[in-house]
Amino acid sequence: MKRREALVAMAAPLLVGFQPAAAQPTVARGILAHFLDLIIPADDVTPSASALGVHTELEDAVRSHALLSQLFDYGLSWLDQAGGRSFLSLSPETQQAILVHAAQADFNQIPGRFFAVARLLATEIYFSKSEAIAGLPLNKAPQPDGYLPPWS
């Protein structure tokens, strides 16, 4: 099974018959880049997720699968309502608290499943960029040089 198929399979059983009344996908979509930058922020060594275009690639990937797209619509809607007002208008501390809640939430509920899938996709896309591996003992790719011994 390809990684993407596995993610669709993760989304599928949760979404069958799920119809939240408050889903507002077009409004929530705007917060994706900010949400991903909270997962992968910039630091002294490597750039943030959005600086490497992770949100754009992730959006394309999600849009090509109906179930993934539906999961993200619901997940982002939840995110934008969880603090009682627009996610982007919340304080950094409150935004952080919402992400901690999602990261620890039941995988079989929308917040938990959405966070897990978004994090998986985002880290996969992020670490496929050569800028993202600065600070790690890795070549830009395994070939052509390989890793000749000694290794310690």
Binding site: R3, E124, S128, P142
Partner: peptide, 9 residues
């Protein structure tokens, strides 16, 4: 193609 940055995907 093991010589591309996205090799792990």
């Amino acid at each position: 193609p093991q010589d591309r940055p996205d090799w792990e995907r």
